[in-house]
Write a protein that binds this DNA or RNA. Structure first.
Length: 433
RNA sequence: GUGGCCGUAGCUCAGUCCGGUUAGAGCGCCAGGUUGUGGCCCUGGAGGUCGGGGGUUCAAGUCCCCUCGGUCACCCCA
């Protein structure tokens, strides 16, 4: 390696660890992920979305279109040169790739797509903020109707409710058209220039760099100094204002509680018109945004496609799970195992019988390595199976099995092998005594 | 990227301030009590280069420096 800054691969004495800011998800926690994904897929399907898979890396330019004023693009991009000298980057979020795919394939509109994907950002990790995190999300291309904005938000809300979340709130805002947004930028810069010295020191340099960000500062001094700052909602064109009105009216009509927050801004600067965030009220942390989204009417064009309106949201799986933990909701699903086969003879019966049970559509696991009956029964208990099928010397000789209920009073019966599947089915339908 | 706190068995942690014989607990795991029966109980066992490296010292889990990782705030965001 000629690059003096590159580090040699390490060979730690205690073995390797997942890279900084990344993590492994093992069972049983992974079962929550599966269930969460199934929930999202089900709801997206209900709303007419089809799943889209796009590459995990793209030409760097695809992501640069997201905006140069954005940290996600300017300092957190996981970009590199591949062996062919191409400048590529691991995706930092879902939208840009999906819109790129739209522009490339031109599916008929309205195009409603959902995705589940890892996302990469080179930043200093902490809880709820990782170098590789995972998002589910949706995008709608080719619909300008504000009612789709309502539908997109409704889908997000339905998703959180389906997971059992309650303690969250929705804030919405409108950035107006690109034209409105430009006007507002001018008005805001003018205002901020006048009060710059009254802002908290840490916020002063944002006045030129990222004026919108001054407004969502959490510092009291800045909040006081900007109390009279112009609001986006005040400078919207009539058309933009009416559009936003239609969105909030729709949310009201559907009974989706929300607050209009004129100071809400979002990082990626492709947003126009509707902007929204679902924030956790249960997470005591700066990383409380569990869903973020909005409309991006200029993005398809910026990626070389026809002028196409778009709207969508992304939701961080880790953060949603953190939120659900804080609410004590969405428990880990149980294993769903029907039976566990315990064979204390030579294991041949377990080998054959377990597979027969699976042929019959049951979920079954078994003990291995000729462990003691006590050990295998512990395994059966741990597996979460409803019943244990026990084969000892007696059963092996008689061609029978003992079926033991692992719940309740743990009744057991010895039956012929031909009757096993039906008897298990009957047992599965009975409540534990 | 900046600053604070933390890092001891698989997990949660005590011990670190005031350095001193074989580093502890609970949970989990394994085995036995119960040579055909899990979940409760009892007994025993395995498991730790005290995140890693260097330094100070007769002596370092304990003090100092560096480094890696986690965490919190900022920045920013899912």
């Amino acid at each position: 390696m000629s690059d003096p800054t590159s580090k040699a691969p390490s060979t730690p004495a205690k073995g390797f660890k997942a890279p900084i800011g990344t993590h492994d998800v093992l069972a049983p926690e992974s079962a929550r992920w599966t269930a969460l994904l199934a929930t999202f897929a089900g709801i997206a399907g209900q709303y007419g979305y089809g799943m889209v898979h796009t590459p995990m890396f793209e030409d760097l330019g695809v992501f640069l279109r997201m905006g140069e004023g954005t940290d996600v693009v300017t300092k957190e991009m996981y970009d590199f040169e591949d062996k062919g000298g191409r400048r590529v980057a691991l995706r930092p979020e879902g939208t840009a790739s999906v819109v790129r795919a739209f522009v490339e394939h031109r599916p008929i509109v309205p195009w409603k797509a959902w995705y589940a994907t890892p996302a990469f950002r080179y930043e200093k990790p902490q809880k709820g903020r990782y170098r590789q995190h995972h998002q589910v999300g949706i995008e709608v291309l080719g619909v300008d109707d504000p009612d789709i904005d309502v539908e997109v938000i409704a889908l997000a809300d339905r998703y959180l409710k389906a997971l059992g979340a309650e303690r969250y709130s929705l804030v919405v805002n409108s950035m107006g058209s690109l034209h409105d947004r430009r006007n507002y930028d001018v008005a805001l810069r003018e205002f901020l220039a006048g009060v710059k010295n009254d802002l908290a020191d840490e916020d002063q340099d944002k006045v030129e760099r990222n004026p919108l960000r001054v407004l969502d500062s959490k510092r009291r001094q800045t909040m006081q100094a900007t109390a009279d700052a112009p609001r986006v909602t005040d400078v919207l064109s009539t058309e933009s204002a009416e559009r936003f009105e239609r969105v909030t009216e729709g949310l009201d009509a559907l009974g989706i509680r929300h607050t209009v927050e004129p100071r809400l801004v979002r990082g990626l600067d492709y947003y126009t018109h509707t902007l929204f965030e679902f924030q956790s009220d249960a997470l005591d942390s700066a990383q409380a945004t569990i869903i973020g989204g909005g409309r991006y009417n200029g993005l398809a064009e910026a990626l070389g496609g026809p002028e196409t309106p778009g709207i969508g949201f992304g939701s961080g799986i880790e953060r949603v799970l953190l939120h659900l933990d804080a609410e004590d909701a969405f428990p880990t699903p149980d294993s769903g195992l029907d039976v566990f086969v315990v064979d204390v003879t030579d294991g041949r019966s377990a080998r054959d019988l377990t597979e027969t049970l699976r042929d019959a559509g049951l979920s079954a696991d078994r003990g291995f390595d000729g462990r003691s009956m006590k050990a295998q029964m512990k395994g059966a208990n741990r597996s979460g199976a409803r019943a244990a099928v026990i084969i000892g010397a007696d059963e092996a000789a008689a061609g029978t099995v003992t079926l033991r209920d692992l719940r309740g009073d743990s009744d057991q019966q010895t039956i012929g092998r031909d009757d096993l599947v039906t008897t298990i089915r009957t047992l599965l339908e009975t409540d534990p005594s």
